Amino acid sequence: SGWQYDTQCSLAGVGIEMGDWQEVWDENTGCYYYWNTQTNEVTWELPQYLATQVQGLQHYQP
Score class of each variant (00 low, 15 high):
residue 58 Q to N: 14
residue 15 G to R: 11
residue 25 W to Y: 08
residue 43 T to A: 10
residue 37 T to D: 09
residue 14 V to Y: 15
residue 58 Q to I: 03
residue 5 Y to C: 02
residue 38 Q to Y: 14
residue 61 Q to N: 10
residue 58 Q to C: 06
residue 39 T to N: 10
residue 31 C to N: 14
residue 14 V to A: 11
residue 57 L to E: 10
residue 56 G to K: 13
residue 8 Q to A: 15
residue 57 L to A: 07
residue 42 V to E: 13
residue 30 G to L: 04
residue 48 Q to F: 06
residue 61 Q to F: 07
residue 6 D to Y: 02
residue 36 N to A: 02
residue 24 V to G: 06
residue 42 V to H: 11
residue 7 T to L: 04
residue 46 L to Y: 11
residue 53 Q to P: 02
residue 43 T to S: 12
residue 33 Y to I: 03
residue 2 G to L: 12
residue 27 E to R: 10
residue 57 L to R: 12
residue 56 G to E: 15
residue 32 Y to W: 03
residue 24 V to D: 08
residue 10 S to K: 04
residue 53 Q to N: 01
residue 14 V to N: 11
residue 58 Q to H: 12
residue 24 V to Q: 14
residue 20 D to R: 12
residue 61 Q to A: 14
residue 53 Q to R: 08
residue 11 L to D: 04
residue 33 Y to T: 05
residue 5 Y to K: 10
residue 43 T to I: 01
residue 56 G to M: 05
residue 11 L to A: 01
residue 16 I to H: 01
residue 6 D to A: 05
residue 6 D to I: 07
residue 49 Y to D: 12
residue 23 E to N: 00
residue 47 P to T: 00
residue 30 G to N: 09
residue 42 V to Q: 15
residue 30 G to C: 08
residue 54 V to K: 02
residue 6 D to H: 06
residue 10 S to M: 03
residue 41 E to Q: 13
residue 60 Y to C: 13
residue 46 L to K: 02
residue 34 Y to G: 02
residue 21 W to M: 03
residue 16 I to M: 14
residue 22 Q to S: 09
residue 47 P to G: 00
residue 61 Q to Y: 06
residue 2 G to D: 15
residue 46 L to P: 04
residue 38 Q to G: 11
residue 12 A to V: 11
residue 55 Q to A: 12
residue 19 G to T: 01
residue 22 Q to G: 07
residue 15 G to L: 02
residue 21 W to E: 00
residue 47 P to S: 00
residue 36 N to C: 07
residue 52 T to H: 14
residue 11 L to H: 03
residue 1 S to P: 01
residue 3 W to N: 15
residue 20 D to E: 09
residue 15 G to Q: 14
residue 40 N to Y: 03
residue 50 L to Y: 01
residue 58 Q to W: 04
residue 36 N to T: 00
residue 8 Q to E: 14
residue 12 A to D: 07
residue 7 T to Q: 12
residue 54 V to Y: 06
residue 18 M to I: 07
residue 10 S to Q: 03
residue 58 Q to G: 11
residue 62 P to C: 12
residue 13 G to S: 09
residue 61 Q to L: 10
residue 27 E to F: 06
residue 33 Y to H: 09
residue 56 G to H: 08
residue 28 N to D: 12
residue 53 Q to Y: 00
residue 60 Y to G: 14
residue 35 W to A: 15
residue 6 D to S: 05
residue 48 Q to S: 12
residue 3 W to S: 14
residue 55 Q to K: 09
residue 32 Y to Q: 00
residue 23 E to P: 01
residue 39 T to A: 04
residue 15 G to Y: 02
residue 10 S to E: 08
residue 41 E to C: 04
residue 18 M to A: 01
residue 33 Y to M: 06
residue 57 L to N: 08
residue 4 Q to D: 15
residue 38 Q to W: 08
residue 4 Q to K: 15
residue 7 T to A: 13
residue 14 V to C: 11
residue 22 Q to P: 00
residue 21 W to A: 00
residue 28 N to F: 05
residue 5 Y to W: 08
residue 20 D to M: 06
residue 11 L to P: 02
residue 49 Y to Q: 14
residue 32 Y to V: 01
residue 8 Q to T: 15
residue 61 Q to C: 08
residue 41 E to V: 06
residue 39 T to I: 05
residue 53 Q to W: 02
residue 27 E to I: 09
residue 28 N to I: 15
residue 45 E to V: 06
residue 44 W to R: 13
residue 11 L to T: 02
residue 32 Y to G: 01
residue 12 A to I: 05
residue 37 T to M: 14
residue 2 G to P: 09
residue 10 S to N: 03
residue 40 N to A: 11
residue 46 L to N: 02
residue 43 T to D: 11
residue 44 W to H: 07
residue 35 W to Q: 15
residue 35 W to N: 12
residue 56 G to Y: 04
residue 22 Q to L: 06
residue 26 D to W: 07
residue 55 Q to W: 13
residue 19 G to I: 01
residue 33 Y to C: 08
residue 51 A to H: 06
residue 51 A to V: 07
residue 13 G to T: 12
residue 9 C to T: 15
residue 20 D to C: 09
residue 34 Y to C: 00
residue 24 V to H: 09
residue 30 G to P: 07
residue 60 Y to W: 11
residue 34 Y to F: 08
residue 15 G to F: 02
residue 41 E to Y: 07
residue 14 V to M: 12
residue 42 V to P: 04
residue 18 M to R: 02
residue 58 Q to D: 06
residue 28 N to Y: 07
residue 18 M to F: 06
residue 30 G to E: 11
residue 1 S to F: 04
residue 26 D to T: 08
residue 19 G to D: 05
residue 2 G to Y: 15
residue 8 Q to Y: 07
residue 44 W to S: 12
residue 36 N to G: 02
residue 43 T to M: 06
residue 11 L to I: 11
residue 24 V to E: 08
residue 3 W to G: 06
residue 48 Q to N: 11
residue 34 Y to I: 04
residue 15 G to K: 11
residue 12 A to C: 08
residue 8 Q to F: 07
residue 3 W to M: 13
residue 16 I to Y: 05
residue 34 Y to E: 01
residue 7 T to C: 13
residue 17 E to Y: 00
residue 52 T to I: 13
residue 3 W to R: 08
residue 49 Y to S: 14
residue 46 L to T: 07
residue 48 Q to R: 11
residue 21 W to R: 01
residue 29 T to R: 14
residue 16 I to L: 09
residue 49 Y to R: 03
residue 45 E to L: 08
residue 21 W to N: 00
residue 60 Y to H: 14
residue 4 Q to F: 15
residue 22 Q to I: 07
residue 59 H to Y: 06
residue 38 Q to K: 15
residue 24 V to R: 09
residue 5 Y to Q: 05
residue 16 I to E: 03
residue 30 G to V: 08
residue 50 L to F: 01
residue 43 T to E: 11
residue 20 D to S: 06
residue 55 Q to F: 12
residue 26 D to L: 03
residue 31 C to Q: 12
residue 33 Y to R: 08
residue 38 Q to V: 10
residue 33 Y to W: 03
residue 18 M to C: 03
residue 28 N to Q: 05
residue 21 W to H: 06
residue 48 Q to P: 15
residue 4 Q to N: 15
residue 51 A to S: 08
residue 61 Q to R: 10
residue 3 W to F: 15
residue 30 G to K: 14
residue 35 W to H: 15
residue 55 Q to D: 12
residue 57 L to I: 09
residue 2 G to F: 14
residue 19 G to P: 00
residue 6 D to Q: 01
residue 48 Q to E: 12
residue 32 Y to D: 00
residue 20 D to Y: 08
residue 32 Y to L: 02
residue 26 D to G: 05
residue 51 A to K: 12
residue 16 I to S: 03
residue 25 W to A: 08
residue 24 V to N: 07
residue 21 W to Q: 01
residue 26 D to N: 11
residue 62 P to N: 15
residue 26 D to M: 10
residue 38 Q to L: 09
residue 60 Y to M: 15
residue 37 T to Y: 07
residue 33 Y to G: 03
residue 46 L to G: 01
residue 26 D to Q: 08
residue 5 Y to N: 04
residue 31 C to D: 04
residue 18 M to P: 07
residue 2 G to E: 15
residue 15 G to C: 08
residue 33 Y to K: 13
residue 43 T to N: 07
residue 54 V to G: 03
residue 26 D to E: 09
residue 8 Q to P: 03
residue 20 D to Q: 06
residue 8 Q to K: 15
residue 59 H to L: 11
residue 18 M to G: 03
residue 50 L to D: 00
residue 5 Y to G: 05
residue 36 N to K: 02
residue 15 G to M: 06
residue 23 E to L: 02
residue 36 N to S: 03
residue 26 D to F: 06
residue 2 G to R: 10
residue 1 S to M: 15
residue 25 W to T: 05
residue 15 G to A: 15
residue 4 Q to L: 05
residue 15 G to E: 08
residue 59 H to P: 10
